[in-house]
Design a protein around this nucleic acid. Structure first.
Lengths: 262, 262
DNA sequence: TCGACAAACTGGCTTAAGCCAGTTAAGCAC
DNA sequence: GTGCTTAACTGGCTTAAGCCAGTTTGTCGA
């Protein structure tokens, strides 16, 4: 029931949200710098005259927004913005392969960090429907090789990459069975097989990590993953490889530089 | 203290996580279909012999992962995967401008939905450092026009776009002052001014929405935003416009189709 | 048949209390 | 000093109880 002249509700904000907003403001304005420790839950509770649970809820809100890291036994800290690993627009170019460095490795090295890529599994499977469609094969007729890679910078996991290639193409290549692919990486091996990346089709979106990714990437709360689905097209206009990357969105970005047709 | 032969911890999973994992499993496997209602907090609590708070915590975990929507007074429901608005690779092409539809409008229309774009503000400001850098101007010497647009599909907000253009270029164009830009949109007007998009540079990442975006986009918990920074390069290789998009990652994806150089 | 109303129900949010595990720092023994 | 032990502290997580606001549903009356 409102009396005439009342403001349109001006809904009361719950204490947990109000405290979160106060802290958020202070974080964004720089009152708390990256790395700074927030007041303890118990201190916040006392300062604002609420229960500890409510203070904890406020901090949980900020953690969910990716603004704050909590460490059991220690405290809650303003999350530092990490240096971005930026996958450059020219990352599929052939001259990069000549250098022997992967796009990921090149960028991480450029930042003075140490890249590491491990191939955790190589299997031969019936392709998932989505993969078969992108490869323009029928999932009944043809199997694919599935390679799973984990990418690290200074031992921190950064992205998961799953690559699918038709068995008929890679059957006699190291791609089908070896965790090490030799100089120039996988695209150099595809070159050897007569398939050169001539065009790349990428589809990007983002989402919260699934538990498996959370375990592998050790993603803190409030950090989404960039979901990149890639198709490599060869000189004959045929797709010969698809990859699916899940990247820590707080550490990674993807660049594109595309010519605009008429 | 562990005795020899102990398994490496096998750490006990807290009840809230365990219940969340059970529900998650049932959601992913299809036991609960999109739109299905989960048991109520009170029912879950009783079923698993825990307090209602613990059941609520389990559901909050799933909400944070974007798997579940909660509606006060009603229940928690498995979130339906919305149809993706896919911004196609050819979205800057000139022939698209001829059709009179924006890339966003074209895709939404193609899906049988109704697109709407509103320009909420046009201001003349000193460019933020990042914008000045991308436009290759000095923020002291030159001001820019800042246009903010909100994009809707069937009245649901989908993305926020903020466009910056040097005042010296758009001073005498509708771009500097009119919320309606005429046929072909902003790139057609830039064409009129002698600046044709010849190359596009895009940088993509993702993050959780800031409160302002949350308010405009009405984003439910557990949904990140795709953060796209775009630079338009003209026929002389000079940048003439930068845009910053924040897109609901659960409803939108971005495509690229790039030729691979040597 | 239909609308209004009321009761039952559901999630949102809080309080107060407590145990646990990980961290930190002080102090003590050497 | 150096290294260990311990006590204090911090977040993680739970219980039990309760009020509130929004939703659903059943019932009653016109």
């Amino acid at each position: 029931m409102t009396t005439p002249g009342d403001r349109p509700a001006a809904e009361p904000i719950p204490p947990s949200r109000r405290i979160a907003a106060l802290l958020r403001e202070k974080i964004i304005s720089g009152g708390y710098a990256p790395g700074d420790k927030l007041p303890t839950e118990r201190a916040l509770a006392q300062q604002h005259g609420v229960a500890r649970n409510t203070a904890a809820a406020a901090i949980r809100i900020l953690a969910g927004e990716g603004l704050v890291d909590t460490h059991q036994g220690s405290g809650a800290y303003v999350r530092a913005t990490p240096r971005l690993i930026r996958l450059g627009a020219g990352r599929y170019a052939r001259n990069l392969r000549a250098s022997g460095l992967s796009p990921f490795g090149a960028e991480v090295t450029r930042q003075g960090r140490t890249p590491r890529v491990v191939c955790t599994s190589i299997t031969r499977i019936e392709p998932p429907a989505e993969v078969a469609e992108r490869l323009e094969i029928s999932s009944r007729d043809e199997t694919v090789v599935r390679r799973e890679n984990h990418y690290f910078a200074d031992e921190s996991p950064m992205q998961i990459g799953i690559t699918y290639a038709p068995w008929s193409i890679v059957e006699h290549s190291v791609i089908s069975h070896s965790t090490t692919l030799g100089p120039g990486g996988i695209y150099a091996r595809f070159d050897d097989l007569g398939h050169s990346v001539t065009r790349a089709r990428d589809e990007l979106s983002a989402r919260m990590p699934i538990p498996e990714e959370l375990a592998i990437l050790a993603i803190p709360p409030g950090v989404p993953v960039l979901d990149l689905r890639h198709v490599s097209i060869d000189q004959n206009g045929r797709p010969f490889e698809v990859s699916h990357f899940a990247m820590r969105a707080d550490h990674m970005a993807v660049d594109y530089d595309v010519p605009v047709e008429d």
